[in-house]
Each structure stands twice: as C-alpha cells, then as structure tokens.
Design a protein around this nucleic acid. Sequence first.
DNA 1: ATGACTCCCAGTGGGAGA
Length: 254
Amino acid sequence: MKLATWNVNSLAVRLPQLLEWLDAHPVDAIVLQETKLTDDRFPAAELEAAGWCVQRFGQKTYNGVALLSRAAATDIVLNIPGFDDEQARVITGTVDGVRIVGAYAPNGQAPDSDKFAYKMRWLDALRDWLRDELARHPQLVLMGDFNIAPEDRDVHDPVAWAGQIHCTPQERAHFRALLELGLVDAFRLFDQPPKSWTWWDYRNLAFRKNQGLRIDHILVGPALQPRVQACTIDKAPRRNERPSDHAPVVVEIG
DNA sequence: ATGACTCCCAGTGGGAGA
C-alpha cells in the first residue's frame, strides 16, 4: 500500500491540485494539513465523487487536518486524547489494518515565545499518547508536518538556521523522543539525494534555489518497518502555478 | 534587513506561517 502526507496550505485554494495529484498518484490514503476549513465548508462531496472516503477535522482560518482513504477509515480519533486543545491538529483512523496518525505540529514561531512553549507541551502529549497507541496498534504510521528539521542535513543552511525555530535542540530532542518509541523515519531508511527538502519559503526564490527544510515526515511503527519499500518526496507540485509551500511525502509499504 | 510571499479575515492593514 501507498500512504502520503501533504500540507496543502488551504484546501480551498489547493483542491484542484490535490485532485490532480491524487489522480496521478494512486495512494491508498493521504493525510492533509492546514486545510484551514471548518467541517461544514470541507469539500467532501467533490472528494467523495473522486472515490475518496473523507474524514476531516477543521477550524476557521488556521490548522485543520483530514484523512482521505480508498477504503473507509475506522476508529477515528480527533486530536490527542487527554490533551485539551482548541486547535485542530491531529486526525487518526485505521485503514486496511494500518493505524494512520495524521498530525500538524505547532509552528512554534520563536524559541522564546508562548507558541514555542505550546509546541513543547503538544509534542510531550503526542509522545505520551503515541506510546499507548503503539501498544494497541503496532502497525502504526505517524505522518504529517512536524515543523521540525531533525538534523543539520535536513536544513539548506544549517549555520544560518542554528538555534532557529524548527532547528532548536529542544525540538530535535522531541523528534528523537518519538523515534525512541520505536518509530523510524521512513525517508532515512533509504539512500536519498542530498539537499532533500519538503518545504521551501515562498519568498526570495527559495524553491528555484532549492533552499528549504525537511520538516514533513513519515514515521513507521515497529510492526510495519520490515514492509517499508520506499519513501520519496514529490517536488513536482511545488512547481505548480499557485503551489503549496510544502511538497507531498509518500511511503510504500509492501 | 523587524524584508521578501501567500493565505486568511478583514476592510484599504495585520497576523500567521516557517
């Protein structure tokens, strides 16, 4: 099976590109971040007409996540159980026996900000809940926009970004804490081209100059790891006329 | 360089993203 994650930066704007991409890329399920739509405005009918089962969890203006699948998703969970949160950031469901967690981690804005403190609390809660969820569902995939560049090789200019948001030691420690649960970074299971990013700033011709960060990830639970056959970033949609600033990431599981 | 671009809600600007 193939699974994908994509921060679409407004599904209202990106729906045609999403439908086009899904048409060309036969995934079994995809998780979306930054849909920026309340549930009543989510384009469920258009997606269902294209053959997708739709689960969405949104809010006005910000955040918002969704899980689209060919087979119906079951046992849906919204956000992190036990973590009181006004923001719509996590959607979880089981598709074809795989527990799929689609997540949009807080940006954090700046390391000395309240938003960074919230990011730390959120990542704490995610890890604590995933520990239990992995015990219940060893065939688990956590994927989405983590807003963390795990290592310097995930940053186009590690010197300029040192200590900046997405690259702080605290954020990277949180990423490693997820790996310590038994999850593995699917992208790094394989040889990859150097300078592989999933996000490029809209400004300053960053995409053309390939100045980006790898902050969107697919982490695979222990029971699925022997079945992971490939993990790739699809840069092509970033070349569209009105692109999301993020590219989709795809994992193939045998 | 407290920038640059894009999206949103607003309302002729400002917050947020990363």
